[in-house]
Computed example of a mutant assay.
Amino acid sequence: MTEQEYYDLTIIGGGPVGMFAATYARMRLAKTQIIESLDSLGGQVSALFPSKKIYDIPGFEGITGAELIARLEKQTMAFSPDVFLGETVKNFEKNELGFKIETTKRITYSKAIIIAAGVGAFEPRRLAAKNSSDFENKNVHYFVKDPQNFVKKDVAIAGGGDSAVDWALELEHIAKSVHIIHRRDQFRAMEGNVEKLRQSSVSIHTPYTVDSLDELEDGKLGLTLKKAKSDEEEQLAVDDLIVNYGFVSDTKILASWGLEMNRKTLVVDQNQQTSIPGVYAIGDIASRPGKINLIATGFGEAPNAVNNALVQIYPEKKQPTHSTQLIKNFESLNN
């Protein structure tokens, strides 16, 4: 392969952080491709919480996952990176010009790689209650695609993290009643939202877990709640149960790439570079001391990785000044 047939940057993962990395890379006039295993851009945000409000994006009081992805996709496509959907990177190998990348559909080449794979392949943590699988896709839900499905209904939410608390606060305004069930008295969500929860009309059941489910005569879902470290039980009748226990991820493919890992994440240095020179990682998949996993954090890591990768590829090029100048350069080249 000739140097002209290489991409400057290949971004593995088309979630929010991957899209912004592609946007910034194209602003720097880098020949860029995104490879995304799903059939659409958006990654975990689109798959897991498209309707959920996100509150840690600068400039927005609150924005749904779907709205955020739509805005990011519009921004990214304005800069025209090449986008390959429904395609998974199987492996890559170093060569004299960069990397040979094998996907499930083709062989491609790149001078540097930026991994923005989120948490890898993922699926929700299932409810451990007896016969819970009998109610999946009926009364038991692991994803909320449309909050309007719960209008004027009695809804229970199992979980104690940000998603569970956010959904409880969101549905409070449209549901007939909302109950939140958590195995501990202390919630793991953001303190401000936990305080809102305690001041809301949401019924809080702690420290309880969902022990079993039954279909009641009136079509309701009967929940038997068991108190932690006790034989005490509580009965609850609802229309729907939303389970927010987080998700489990599969990073087997990542582990096969020979990169240094910290549990299921990739170890990076201050330049976002992994243990293989020329391979960078950003977003939730990247691990370094003191890091907080927020989308906003990944947005900051993206230009850091792009700039450091391009310095390595083109050491003679000057570092960028600011976004206004980058836009002028991009527009002058594409007009």
Rank of each mutant, 00 (worst) to 15 (best):
Thr321Ile: 10
Ile174Gly: 00
Phe330Gly: 09
Ile113Met: 07
Leu38Val: 09
Phe79Thr: 11
Gly15Ser: 06
Asp8Glu: 07
Asp146His: 07
Ile115Val: 09
His141Arg: 10
Thr209Phe: 12
His322Tyr: 08
Pro277Val: 04
Ser132Asn: 11
Lys94Ala: 03
Glu301Arg: 08
Leu169Tyr: 03
Leu333Ser: 07
Tyr6His: 09
Gly98Tyr: 00
Ala158Lys: 03
Leu85Ala: 01
Tyr6Asn: 10
Gly222Arg: 08
Ser275Lys: 10
Ala121His: 14
Asn244Thr: 12
Thr104Ile: 04
Thr23Pro: 05
Leu48Glu: 09
Ser177Thr: 15
Ser230His: 09
Ala47Asn: 12
Glu96Met: 05
Met261Pro: 04
Ile253Asn: 11
Thr32Ile: 06
Ile157Tyr: 01
Ile11His: 02
Leu236Asn: 03
Pro303His: 00
His173Tyr: 10
Val144Gly: 00
Ala129Arg: 02
Ser200Val: 05
Val144Thr: 02
Glu172Val: 05
Ala175Gly: 03
Glu123Lys: 15
Ala189Arg: 04
Glu195Ala: 11
Gln75Thr: 10
Pro16Cys: 04
Thr32Arg: 01
Val279Asn: 03
Glu93Val: 11
Glu331Thr: 14
Gln272Pro: 00
His205Phe: 05
Met77Arg: 15
Val155Glu: 01
Ala309Gln: 08
Phe49Gln: 01
Ile292Tyr: 15
Thr224Cys: 15
Glu260Lys: 11
Asp284Asn: 13
Asp269Val: 01
Ile157Glu: 02
Asp166Asn: 07
Phe79Lys: 13
Asp146Pro: 05
Gly18Lys: 01
Val17Arg: 03
Lys111Asp: 06
Ile157Pro: 02
Ser323Val: 14
Tyr7Arg: 08
Lys94His: 05
Glu234Lys: 15
Asp240Phe: 10
Asn139Cys: 10
Tyr6Met: 10
Thr104Ala: 05
Lys196Asp: 12
Gly300Leu: 13
Ser110Asp: 09
Asn95Pro: 09
Ile292Asp: 13
Lys152Thr: 04
Val17Lys: 04
Ala175Val: 02
Asp218Gly: 09
Ser203Pro: 00
Phe330Ala: 08
Ala189Cys: 07
Leu48Ser: 12
Gly43Met: 02
His179Met: 07
Leu72Asn: 04
Ile327Cys: 04
Thr265Val: 01
Thr224Trp: 05
Lys220Met: 13
Glu215Tyr: 00
Asn307Leu: 08
Ile327Val: 14
Asn335Phe: 09
Glu136Lys: 08
Ala286His: 05
Val140His: 02
Glu36Arg: 06
Gln44Arg: 07
Leu97His: 14
Val202Ser: 03
Leu9Thr: 04
Ala309Cys: 05
Gly192Lys: 15
Lys90Met: 09
Gly13Arg: 02
Ala30Thr: 03
Lys227Ile: 01
Ser177Asn: 12
Ile180Asp: 02
Asp8Arg: 05
Phe92Arg: 07
Ile63Tyr: 12
Val248Met: 14
Gln272Trp: 00
Thr2Pro: 12
Thr103Tyr: 02
Phe99Trp: 06
Asp211Gln: 11
Val306Glu: 02
Gly300Thr: 07
